[in-house]
């Protein structure tokens, strides 16, 4: 007799179901691949959904040019290992105007190098649906997000005009000018992600594990210096600290936490007993009240 299904079994099955529905319903989907732990789980589930066939859509990475170098190394290794079709897009216009996370506010930088870049890539390739790793537990406005989330022309999100979703019936029929975002991990939590990474023995970017790294303290958060583009202020001493990351993004905007968890079991143990949510390490969300919801309305993923 087969063992009863655990909550991770059910979450996995639900995500596979969503991937298969979206691949059947949309003309040209793409998987948003941001290299982090959620993307790693997302990619693994996509492989499971279509195995033994290949994933029937490409991956898209929006490269702001400010990702940790280890992230790019990990990305290229993952692509090679699984024979994936990866598209890398950077907002060239933003780069030419030198929009960067050191001189610009997080909201301006994120809008130009992430939100605008994403719209450019989706439009250029004519993608009508994009898979993302967003979870409902991440943030208040995400708690109301649909599994199939529709965007009007210009990729705008109107929280009041979202389609009701009943049972597991995912209606992917697009109206004129509409595109969709698809969230197979909607019902997962940060803890589930780590439990699943451990269960499936998946490799993640080593930055998630504690190591001695050069850090400075800025605005109450620990930053790991990934290259020479950031010059510490005179009062900001570079200190080697044993740190890791709970979430990965652009390095000047992603805070590290002190930790001794050097492997996945250590991280699972730490995550299951953590007292703060992971987005506390994302500086962009603290920028303004209701920050995430505003960003989403403008087309942020």
């Amino acid at each position: 007799m087969t063992a009863p299904l655990s909550h991770l079994d059910l979450l996995e099955a639900e995500a596979i179901h969503i991937f298969r529905e979206a691949a059947a319903e949309f003309r040209k989907p793409v998987l948003m691949y941001s290299i982090g732990k959620d993307s790693t789980v997302l990619l693994h589930l996509a492989r499971k959904a279509f195995w033994p066939a290949k994933i029937p859509f490409p991956l898209l990475h929006i490269d702001t040019t400010w990702k940790f170098r280890e992230m790019i190394t990990f990305r290229d290794a993952a692509v090679a290992e699984h024979g994936l079709d990866l598209i890398v897009h950077t907002n060239r216009d933003g780069l030419a105007r030198n929009i960067n996370p050191l001189d610009h506010t997080p909201s301006i930088y994120t809008d130009v190098m992430k939100t605008q870049a994403l719209k450019q890539a989706l439009d250029a390739h004519g993608f009508d649906a994009a898979f993302g790793g967003a979870r409902r537990d991440e943030e208040a406005s995400r708690a109301k997000e649909r599994v199939f989330s529709f965007r009007s022309a210009g990729h705008r999100w109107d929280p009041r005009a979202q389609r009701p979703e009943m049972w597991r019936l995912l209606n992917g029929r697009l109206g004129s000018g509409e595109t969709a975002r698809v969230f197979p991990l909607s019902n997962w939590t940060e803890k589930d992600i780590w439990r699943y990474l451990a269960r499936e023995k998946l490799a993640v970017v080593p930055l998630y594990f504690a190591a001695d790294r050069p850090t400075i303290e800025r605005n109450g958060q620990l930053l790991v210096l990934d290259d020479a583009r950031l010059t510490p202020a005179p009062h900001e001493k570079i200190v080697t600290r044993r740190v890791r990351f709970r979430t990965l993004g652009c390095w000047p905007l992603t805070a590290a936490v002190a930790s001794d968890a050097t492997d996945i079991d250590g991280v699972v143990a730490e995550t299951l007993s953590a007292r703060t949510s992971e987005r506390i390490g994302r500086l962009i969300d603290h920028d303004q009240a209701g920050a995430m919801e505003k960003k989403k309305q403008e087309g942020y993923f």
Binding site: P4, L8, A198, S273
Partner: peptide
């Protein structure tokens, strides 16, 4: 910041790592 870092290192009772029953 100190509060954030200290709470993470001082791991208290570790919750079960196993799957939850449904």
């Amino acid at each position: 910041a100190a509060a954030v870092t200290s709470t993470v290192t001082s791991a208290v009772a570790v919750a079960p790592q196993r799957d939850l029953a449904g």
